[in-house]
Computed example of a mutant assay.
Amino acid sequence: MWLLLLLPCVRADSRCKSDLISSINITAKLQSDILLPCNFELTLFKSDMTADIASVWRESPCKSELVLSLNVTTALQSDVLLPCNFSPGLIGLNTTADIAAVWSHRNMTVNNLVEITLQGQTMYWKNYNRQIKTFSSVSASGNFSILLRNVTQSDEGLYQCDLFNGTGCRIAYQEMHLRFDDSPADGFLTWLVTAGALGGGVVLLVFLITIYICAKRSTNSSNESVSRELYPPEVPHDAVEYTLENPIYDAAVQSETHSSFRAEKGNSAETAVYTAVKKVKRKERKPEEVQ
């Protein structure tokens, strides 16, 4: 009778041997796909164990399901709420369970931000407690939302809220894509700066054109003055008026004023005086000839 009771116990221990069946070294290249084999003999699976293994697999809480994915838009230098709510079916009714939500920021790298337990306890990574506000009073209901304060350009990107049951068992997760938009104030400021720049450019262009015109006129006036000094205007010989009162004086004045003109014609001062006197005599003789 004692042997009959001992045999079932020995059989039970024989089912939990945890033997090492095989050990394999596998070599692969970087950035390549690799197969990790794991095969067991059918003799290890008894008919009465197959149902138990299948039921454990189906009832495993570590499903890691994507529950929600949202796009959140906000403005720079503002506060933004990142929601994260899980249904009671995922959390369960046990308020003392080892369940917690872990927030992470995922861009080029994964940066864990804060862990919020079901009981409302929080644990921050680095110094994120200065920027992140949690709501521990509502975490027991499955609300693990956080508030980001004074967001900057580096805060843009993907945020993930992972719900864990124990250590390493992720039940579900949610994704938040944070983006920045241009507020009306920023758009008006941009338009104002652009308009000011264009107006300043127009004023500067008009100012340069005015300076150029004034400089051009000043240069032309200077050139005309120099030309008059170097090249005085010539007075035609036929334009000289002769009078009967004092022809010799008029000839002398004309000789001083237009010396350059007479020099070009090959006449001297004495020739001008003689010509003037001769013309006067001719004018005086005309009445006598008429009589």
Rank of each mutant, 00 (worst) to 15 (best):
L204W: 09
F188P: 07
Q119S: 09
V202Y: 10
K133N: 12
L147G: 09
S136C: 08
G196W: 13
L189S: 10
V110G: 02
N127L: 12
L147I: 10
L148E: 08
D155Y: 01
L158F: 05
K126W: 07
V110Q: 04
I116E: 02
S141T: 12
F180D: 00
K133G: 04
F207L: 11
L192A: 12
D162C: 00
P184V: 01
W191H: 12
T122Q: 04
A172P: 06
I209C: 13
I209V: 13
Q160D: 04
S137Y: 13
A195W: 12
V193I: 13
D181G: 15
L198A: 07
F135H: 04
R170D: 05
R179H: 15
V114H: 01
G201I: 07
V206S: 06
K133C: 05
Q160W: 05
G157L: 03
F180L: 07
E175V: 15
V206I: 13
V114Q: 07
S139G: 02
T122A: 08
W125H: 00
L147S: 10
V193D: 14
V193W: 15
S141Q: 12
Y124L: 06
A185F: 08
Q174E: 05
P184S: 00
V193F: 04
W125G: 05
G201V: 08
D155G: 00
N165D: 07
F164W: 06
S145V: 06
L205S: 10
C169Y: 03
V206P: 07
N165K: 09
I132Y: 07
F180H: 03
F144A: 03
A195C: 15
E175M: 15
K126D: 13
Q174G: 10
Q153S: 09
N127R: 11
Q153H: 12
N111P: 06
L204Y: 12
Q131F: 08
N127P: 08
F164K: 02
G166E: 01
H177F: 15
V206N: 15
A195S: 14
I116P: 07
L158N: 08
C161S: 01
I146P: 03
G157N: 01
D162R: 04
W125T: 10
A172C: 14
Q131K: 10
G187R: 15
P184Y: 10
A140M: 10
D162T: 04
S141E: 11
C169H: 04
L192P: 09
T167N: 06
I171P: 06
M123F: 13
Y159S: 06
F135S: 08
Y128T: 02
L113C: 00
Q153Y: 06
L192I: 14
